[in-house]
């Protein structure tokens, strides 16, 4: 069961998807993670914190249905009910889009907290898609989190940024300030290319795990379907024949407590041709 019941109050979980560095797959991960939770029947809302540069709506294919956004709700210009977009494919999923026009300071802490509290009445999981960087928008996405998916590419600048983000999660969040149990961190390694790892051209899962020293939730292989699924506005987890999609399915299952082996960590077995002529 996703939610913990205390009397009549549903305690929902707030999960931030963060990375520091841009372009590593935060929004791709947010969209697929939230979709996966909802596909398994958990009431889930995913919020785009990237005020001024929204893109979660595009990845989830609902850009034409955005009328009101997160900042409208914070400012009291629209109700949550008006601003939440119900996903067309997955019933349990809702999206709260970022504002396209205002600047990041529109995310006032009291306002963000009020909206999160209101969402917590209705949803089991609140997924916060953080913008890149460690400016105000990213800090707000992280501040209220119970758990964090730290999205990392096997590449030096991404790993360094992830470590900085881990520092922030352990010192600048509500849990840190109120001396509550620390934010639970999960490593999500994206754009993994086992062939290049074999050649010694790319950091391995183990390298990144050793350096960042947080539990591994999932490894998403580099895959052409991440781009093609974004072209069509369908989160990659919803594709039937995508390795990246299957890896996200596994990731969601593990998050919910299932034991699943990590897949796609090694180079695919070669066919007859490869066996005859390859090394």
């Amino acid at each position: 069961m996703a939610a913990i019941f205390q009397g009549d109050i549903v305690l929902s979980k707030i999960i931030v998807v963060t990375s520091g560095k841009g372009g590593v797959g935060k929004t791709t991960t947010s969209a697929s993670f939230a979709t996966g939770l909802a596909q398994r029947g958990h009431k889930t809302v995913v919020i785009d914190f990237d005020v001024g540069l929204r893109n979660l709506d595009l990845i989830l294919g609902c850009e034409r249905r955005v009328v009101f956004d997160f900042v409208n709700v914070i400012n009291g210009e629209a109700s949550l009910r008006q601003a939440l977009i119900r996903d067309k494919r997955v019933e349990a999923l809702s999206i709260l889009a970022a504002s396209q026009t205002r600047d990041k300071d529109a995310l006032k802490p009291e306002g963000v907290e009020r909206v999160l509290n209101e969402l917590a009445q209705e949803f089991d999981y609140i997924v916060c898609d953080s913008p890149a960087g460690i400016e105000h928008g990213a800090m707000m996405a992280m501040y209220f989190a119970d758990e964090a998916l730290v999205v990392t590419n096997p590449e030096v600048s991404s790993v360094r940024d992830s470590d900085r983000v881990l520092g922030i999660l352990s010192s600048k969040t509500r849990r840190a300030e109120k001396a509550q149990p620390r934010v639970k961190e999960h490593l999500v390694l994206t754009r993994y290319n086992p062939a290049r790892v074999d050649k010694g051209e790319m950091l391995s899962v183990k390298d990144v795990q050793d350096i960042l020293a947080i539990p591994l939730l999932g490894v998403i292989p580099e895959s052409p379907s991440v781009l093609t699924s974004s072209n069509s506005g369908v989160p990659v987890i919803s594709l039937d024949h995508s390795e990246a999609g299957h890896a996200y399915q596994d990731l969601v299952a593990r998050f919910l407590g299932e034991q699943r082996e990590h897949r796609f960590l090694t180079v695919e077995k070669k066919g007859l041709f490869g066996r005859l002529f390859g090394t």
Partner: peptide, 27 residues
């Protein structure tokens, strides 16, 4: 040496440095 092992060594130094700075809130 592979470039991946170079990357690993450089990151180990960087991350150790970053973590020493923020240990016990002394960032």
């Amino acid at each position: 040496k592979t470039t991946a092992s170079l990357a690993r060594e450089r990151l180990q130094v960087i991350v150790a440095h970053q973590r020493a700075g923020r240990a016990n809130g002394l960032d």
